[in-house]
Simulated assay, not measured.
Amino acid sequence: MTTNWTLTIDCADPALVARFWCTALGYIEADPPQGWDTWEDWLIDLNVPKEDWNGGASISDPNGVLPNISFLKVPEPRTAKNRLHLDLQVAGGRAVPQHLREQRIRTTAATLIAAGATLFQEVPMDNSTTLDHLWLKDPEGNDFCVV
C-alpha cells in the first residue's frame, strides 16, 4: 500500500517561490481545502492573523496526476547544498540528437532565468565538453537541474 505525500520546500517567501515553480513545472496554485471558495476564506475561518497569510503556499498539477508541492515559511536561511532536488527533464533523453537536446535545455533555462532562477553551472557529459545539463538555483537558492 502506498502513502499519500507531497514535496515541501522550506523558504522565506512561499508566494514568490510557489509562483516560480508554477512557471518551471506548468503547475497552478492549489485549490483551497474542500468547503472553502478561496484560501483567504479558509485563513479567515481559521482565525489566522493577516501577517501570517504568507506562511505557506501550495501548487498542483493542473491535470491532477503529479504530486502537489508545498512551500513552508521558515525563519532560518538555507545553509548548504540541497540533498534532494528536482530534475526538469526537457531534453527528451540521449536518443534525441545532441543539438536538439541542448537547444531544449537552454530554451527552458532561459525562461526560468527570466522568471528568477540563476545559472550555477553548466555540466558536461563525462570526459567531454558536450552539455549534459544545467544546474540552476530558484529565487531563494534551491538547487535544481534542467536535463
Rank of each mutant, 00 (worst) to 15 (best):
P75C: 05
S60W: 00
L66F: 08
H85K: 05
W39N: 01
N68I: 00
N68A: 11
A57P: 03
I59D: 05
A57L: 05
V48G: 04
P67H: 02
D41L: 02
E51W: 03
L43C: 15
A80G: 12
P49R: 11
W36E: 06
R78T: 08
E51L: 08
T38V: 08
Q89P: 01
H85Q: 12
L84G: 05
L43H: 11
V65C: 04
G93R: 12
R83G: 10
P67K: 02
S60I: 00
K50T: 11
P49G: 07
D41C: 01
E76G: 06
P67E: 02
K50L: 09
G93C: 06
S70V: 00
N63T: 13
D61T: 03
W39T: 04
A80Q: 14
G64D: 02
R78V: 08
P77C: 06
K73M: 04
D45P: 02
D61R: 02
N63E: 15
H99R: 09
Q89M: 14
N47D: 15
R94D: 14
P75W: 11
H85F: 13
N68S: 12
L43Y: 14
P49N: 10
W42K: 04
A57E: 12
N54D: 15
G55T: 07
N82T: 03
F71L: 02
D41W: 03
Q89L: 13
V48A: 14
P49W: 05
I44W: 08
D52F: 09
T79I: 14
R94F: 05
L88C: 06
L43W: 09
V74P: 00
K73R: 15
W53G: 12
A91E: 12
F71Y: 02
P49T: 07
L46R: 14
I44H: 13
Q89D: 12
T38C: 09
N82W: 02
D61F: 01
T38A: 08
D61E: 03
F71K: 02
P49K: 10
G92R: 11
D45H: 13
V74S: 03
A91N: 14
L88M: 06
G55Q: 10
